[in-house]
Nucleic acid binder design. Structure first.
Lengths: 212, 212
DNA sequence: TTGCCCATGTAATTTGTTACATGATTTA
DNA sequence: TAAATCATGTAACAAATTACATGGGCAA
């Protein structure tokens, strides 16, 4: 390990919360009390588009941790019921901690993309050209569906003045999906150019230089 | 659990490999033998931009699994050394399995994006407007750096005809970063529009708060 | 001779998923 | 009254990271 990397280590005893915890707390930072189930559904129609879509079990786990930390508080509906419906709300401590995380000077870090189609394009020498083209077309179709979902969410959020920032993020996401569509079209063109005129080498073997 | 979700369950005994295993095998699918260390460096200058950047320990673990499955084979340099340098190559079985995965009819699934800046924008009500603007600017600066890195990788791959598909993916990534830059600029504009007219009125300006 | 890069690996821990179990309420 | 949705949770496991340990080769 290099020295510069060493300097990135944590010295503090209290360990940092993972992004998921902050995201859950972030959902809670908007007015109202809600259940874990509701949080999950909400995330799937908002944060999913640019950040995160966790398993429901993960939401419940994070809510328990947040409550332990005093960042969230819950009230069950039935008095002494086992596993009763539980509505969560953010606490003052939670709001402060979240504001420190979201509005602090710490770097948000680079966006991380995991694009399965692109990995397959990168590995294009292993697939039939027509199969590759079909994958791109499927991707375009799905992206159109996603764009529609973003716009649906935007139609809801766009009305309410309290949702101004979420609407902003969704607007970004709308543009991002439009760009993804253009990227897909360009990819299809590039793919055709590779396959069509010159008929570039699709053979797997034969020697070649090592990368790097 | 709904019925439609139930149908997605696996019935097969042999469990599917995670994407990381296929990505490592994918790196190995290009001619030449290489060490885990080299694989990591290569991934960080290629797949990182659109798919994946694993911990080095994860690479070593996957290589061991791949060898156990008979998908990869290794040869150590020193004869009986402990922990000697180990160069890996893909096997025929590995190539077949990979081709089945990458070129098969299975859906690549939707791309997943984790954009820390956007989460913070979504949570904009918790931060100072100027801090938010600074974050966007930092993001633009970093994206410019990433774009330069993509182009550097492209300059290397673009020459060799064997790297035609990797070059295609990198070309996609170049365009994607250009789009990300435009998205960031638009976000800055939207942010200013949100902050400007509703905030303190500047008497000299009057109206027309949207900058070019 | 210090420090960086190359190179491989183990251990501990955390994060996150899938599968399972349970039951209430709502809708067709 | 059957099915879907709402709602919470546990258990097992898989994936992945961080920290640590080790040591060779090379260059300022």
């Amino acid at each position: 390990m290099t020295n510069s990397q060493k300097q990135k280590k944590q010295e503090s005893g209290k360990r940092e919360l993972p992004p998921t915890a902050w995201a859950v707390l972030g959902l809670l930072s908007f007015p109202g009390e809600r259940t874990g189930y509701e949080l999950k559904k909400w995330a799937d129609s908002s944060l999913r588009f640019f950040y995160w879509s966790p398993a429901i079990s993960q939401i419940y786990a994070e809510l328990r941790r947040l409550e332990e930390l005093g960042y969230a508080a819950s009230a069950r509906s039935g008095p002494e019921e086992v596993r009763a419906k539980r509505r969560y709300a953010i606490t003052e401590a939670g709001r402060e901690a979240l504001a420190g995380w979201a509005g602090g000077t710490a770097d948000a870090g680079p966006p991380v993309l995991k694009h399965g189609l692109l990995l397959r394009v990168w590995l294009g020498h292993l697939a039939e050209p027509e199969r590759l083209r079909a994958m791109v077309d499927e991707h375009l179709e799905r992206t159109r569906g996603e764009l529609a979902a973003v716009r649906e969410a935007l139609a809801e959020a766009g009305e309410v003045p309290e949702w101004a920032f979420p609407a902003l993020a969704l607007r970004w996401s709308e543009r991002q999906h439009l760009a993804e569509l253009e990227l897909g079209e360009a990819l299809r063109t590039d793919l055709a150019a590779l396959d069509g005129p010159a008929g570039v080498a699709r053979q797997a073997d034969g020697d070649a230089p090592t990368p790097g």
